[in-house]
Amino acid sequence: MQYNDAMTDTENAPVPPAIEVRGLSKRYNLQPVLKDLSLALADGSLCVLVGSNGAGKTTLLRIIASLVRPDAGFAAINGAALKDNAALRRQIGYLGHQTLFYSDLNALENLTHYARLYGLDNVADRVHAGIASMDLVNHQHKPVRTYSRGMLQRLAIARALLHDPAILLLDEPYTGLDKEAAQALDLRLRGLHQPGRTLLIAAHHPQRLLAFASQVAWLRDGRIAQIQAVDRLSETPDLLHYLAEAA
């Protein structure tokens, strides 16, 4: 009987958000970037993070990726605090402004290095699949220092997805991509938007993402000023106006 009660309690326990940050504050050189910021995203969300330059989008993503330690506050993935929890980083895929590649190594070598850091099985298959998915097979043996900005961005996206992370943090993922590559990324992101995977994407020009995103969060003055479901944007005219201006 006790066992059944316990089972019921477990089943009724609230599911923790896939991404949760509470009371985050961060200063750089005494300048506050994030001020008591809180945000919770349910599993399966695709949230577009918008805000003007310097609003703190990159800092927020870097804190969730465990690359920056906040001055105050708490960040968690599926209810588990990120602080001092190295194993949790396996669930996170991060794409930043910089590619994180070694210029003298080629695409195969760079991705193989990351696959090994994550202790992945079938390294060669995963790396080849990642390179093929970004249409870089013909360039895979060239040092990445010879790549164009768009090619580097595609390879960086392949790196972020290499370990099939449940949480994807993408900072301006369309940077440097031509029309075809951007459309291919649209398709990829649509495919990734499913239960079991949560995406938080910072975008200065979010229009193309709104076609398949579930939410928009507006970062202003170091806080989430508004967060709204994409199909209910008409209820938040300020955010709607901001998005129209950002177009």
């Binding site: 465990s66 690359l67 991060y94 994550y118 202790g119 790196r159």
Partner: peptide, 8 residues
């Protein structure tokens, strides 16, 4: 940063 992201 790539090294810092690793789950170790």
């Amino acid at each position: 940063a790539g090294l810092l992201l690793a789950p170790v």
